[in-house]
């Protein structure tokens, strides 16, 4: 293949430039569609980063929404309440906003990564499903803590977050997330993550520090969840602890499973698909010619996700795109064949 086509940096650059160009036209897009497009990018970041933990490294985190919440609240708090001085010092123009926005996004990501480190170090030493249980509990703890934190207005939600997120930032950061996961996996170092997933005992015997690898994957994934949370907060301008509940975590897990664990392109595509589907169902719920029970199902996305999961497990357990190598995404997770 042509060397230019294989250069991941060039793909990243192209994606960022494309995001910038598209962002120029965001004024002519209907506000609702624009928000859906941005949600798609945010969900790509969430799903692709969770895929590093659940897909490539073979751990099972159920707390991605919790890390997203940390990123959302930390960045929102900083940009709403603590950035006036910086904005003023930099002249308050476009440039000042960019500096503040990037700063608070990174701060949100780092806060989430730190939380990931604190949760990950004790629980990742253990094997098996401990991480699922710990992250499940952690996600709920975060939600409850936020509900009881007066500085961010507790359960009634935090409003008045500046609307900084644009099409450009959402897609540029989605591209960056994909670039980072794909580049990482496509290296001798990165293949180490897959060995942890495939056989921890053998990986240890080959000199790979499996605990460390799991923590690295978990903390990296948490960072990007925090980043996505920051984008989300600065898009909706209002965040509410209930928006980062267990259902949101499950939604991201479904994207990863639907796309095929350990297949970055598939997972990103599944994020697009499920976000669009979720929004479309809002309309379906309003179609008056549909029977009442169908409209109620459409209104409750959890049922749809559960049905999608069941159908997928029966028909295509490797995920919609599992086993298809695209985007240099590396080999997909192999599930045991039916006996």
């Amino acid at each position: 293949m042509n060397a230019y086509l294989r250069s991941k940096k060039l793909w990243l650059l192209a994606a960022v430039v494309l995001s910038a160009v598209l962002s120029r036209f965001s004024g002519s897009i209907n506000g609702y569609y624009l928000q859906v497009l941005i949600f798609i990018a945010i969900n790509i970041i969430l799903a692709v980063s969770l895929n590093l933990i659940n897909g490539y490294t073979g751990q099972f985190s159920l707390g991605h929404a919790g890390f997203m919440a940390i990123g959302a609240y930390v960045s929102a708090y900083l940009s709403k309440d603590k950035s006036a001085g910086v904005l003023h010092a930099l002249g308050g123009g476009e440039f000042a906003i960019v500096v503040v926005f990037v700063g608070v996004l990174i701060a949100g990501g780092l806060a989430a990564a730190l939380a990931g480190l604190l949760v990950g170090v004790p629980s990742l030493r253990l094997r098996g499903d401990y991480l699922a249980i710990v992250t499940l509990g952690f996600g709920e703890i975060i939600r409850v803590v936020i509900q009881n934190t007066d500085a961010v207005n507790g359960a009634s939600g935090y409003s008045g977050v500046p609307s900084y997120t644009t099409l450009f930032w959402a897609y540029a950061l989605a591209a960056l997330t994909i670039y980072i996961v794909v580049s990482l996996i496509d290296s001798t170092y990165g293949r180490g993550f897959l060995t942890v997933r495939d056989d921890e005992v053998a990986a240890e015997a080959m000199g790979i520090d499996t605990t460390r690898r799991k923590v690295v994957a978990f903390v990296t994934g948490s960072f990007f969840a925090g980043l996505a949370g920051g984008l989300f907060a600065h898009e909706t301008t209002y965040i509410n602890p209930a928006g980062f509940d267990f259902q949101k975590s499950i939604e991201i897990v479904v994207m990863v499973i639907l796309g095929g664990m350990g297949n970055t392109a598939g997972v990103a595509f599944a994020a697009v698909l499920l976000t669009t589907l979720g929004e479309y169902l809002r309309f379906v719920a309003k179609y008056e010619w549909l029977p009442d029970w169908l409209r109620r199902i459409a209104d409750n996305r959890t049922i749809i996700y559960a049905l999608v999961l069941i159908a997928l497990m029966l028909l295509r357990p490797q995920g919609l795109f599992g086993g298809i190598r695209a985007f240099g995404g590396g080999p997909a997770r192999q599930l045991p064949k039916k006996a």
Partner: peptide, 19 residues
């Protein structure tokens, strides 16, 4: 035998170079 099941022959050996 405990090979890395999802990896190719090449990647199985390559993984050992992590050391």
């Amino acid at each position: 035998i405990r090979l890395f099941a999802s990896l190719s022959v090449f990647d199985n050996v390559r993984a050992a170079f992590n050391l």
